[in-house]
């Protein structure tokens, strides 16, 4: 009797999760499994398709173009992510401080760029960056020298970082701001009674409350950096020689499959990048949560 009812309830549970499971298998598991499968083969224009084992992986490990792109996004991540998160943090603290006039306006204004589609945002910045007819040209004219060259080799990562920061500061600010909103008011009261100043409150209460949100935002940002694609890919038409086809790992994967029909190599890049990203995100999460336990 008991076994019967248990199995019946199990079937019921399955029925409830089935819609999710089907979609999950179809759109998540199947493509990943298929990519792994693809990465074990090599399809040639002449000679057809053949199983090559781990050869694609062995080649990727010594592929200078892949590692150049990888190191570039790593450099980008190490500089751009802290800058963006600090800006977002300052904005969230300022809006939460209750000392800012029209904080609702600032909240919406800082968040607004996130609502602009990435493609539109990059095109817009592309016009601004134009060093012959764009805003940058006017700036250079005004300064009387070619101070800014957003599409030059030395500046291009800064130019892209600026766009990405502009796009996502508001999004991260909102994550931080919502974490601050749930801090109970009596904590602040207690701090005030103890004679804590504004900065002491930030250090002792707000930053503690934000720890989880900061870990989450950092993981999101790391994943986003490794996935960098839209911004450089669109700017490429304006700086074709500076932004190469392997500028970021994602661009490399894209161009391998869509310009070179090297679907197998492309799948290999996708899997390797996926594993690297997952490992780094996991390490960040582990470190973040360990601190929280302490």
């Amino acid at each position: 009797m008991t076994t019967l009812s248990r199995s019946r309830s199990e079937w019921k549970g399955l029925a409830f999760t089935a819609p999710f499971l089907i979609v999950f298998l179809l759109v998540f598991v199947a493509p990943v499994v298929y990519s792994v499968y693809l990465s074990l083969f090599r399809e040639q224009m002449v000679g057809g398709n053949a199983f090559v084992g781990l050869e694609n992986y062995a080649e990727l490990v010594v592929d200078a173009q892949f590692w150049e792109g990888f190191l570039r996004v790593l450099l980008f991540l190490v500089i751009q992510v802290p800058v963006m998160l600090v800006l977002a943090l300052v904005a969230a603290l300022a809006i939460d401080s209750a000392r800012l006039h029209a904080s609702g306006f600032f909240r919406i204004a800082i968040f607004l760029p996130y609502a602009v589609p990435a493609v539109v945002a990059v095109l817009m910045w592309g016009f601004i960056y134009g060093d012959q007819f764009g805003l940058v040209a006017n700036l250079n004219d005004w300064l009387g020298a070619s101070v800014f060259a957003p599409f030059s080799r030395d500046w291009i990562l800064v130019s892209i970082g600026n766009i990405v920061t502009w796009e996502f500061v508001g999004y991260n600010m909102l994550i931080f701001y919502s974490a601050l909103k749930v801090v109970p008011g009596d904590l602040y009261e207690a701090a005030e009674l103890d004679g804590a100043g504004a900065f002491r409150v930030i250090r002792a209460i707000k930053l503690q409350a934000l720890r989880g949100a900061i870990v989450i935002a950092t993981i999101f940002s790391i994943i986003g950096s490794f996935q960098l694609f839209n911004e450089p890919n669109i700017l490429r038409t304006l700086a074709p020689n500076i932004i190469t086809t392997f500028f970021t790992p994602n661009m490399y994967a894209y161009n391998l499959s869509f310009s070179g029909q090297q679907y197998n190599a492309s799948a290999t890049v996708a899997i390797v990048m996926g594993v690297i990203t997952a490992v780094i995100a996991y390490v960040v999460q582990l470190r973040g949560s360990r601190k929280e336990e302490r």
Binding site: P31, Y171, F220
Partner: peptide
């Protein structure tokens, strides 16, 4: 930076497109 959801979506799009492109091939 993008949210993990759109980041994920991008990976999936690339993987799925490549998958679709190859899918019919063998058959």
């Amino acid at each position: 930076m993008s949210s993990s959801r759109s980041a994920l979506r991008r990976t999936l799009t690339i993987a799925a497109t490549a998958a679709l492109a190859i899918g019919g091939l063998a058959a």
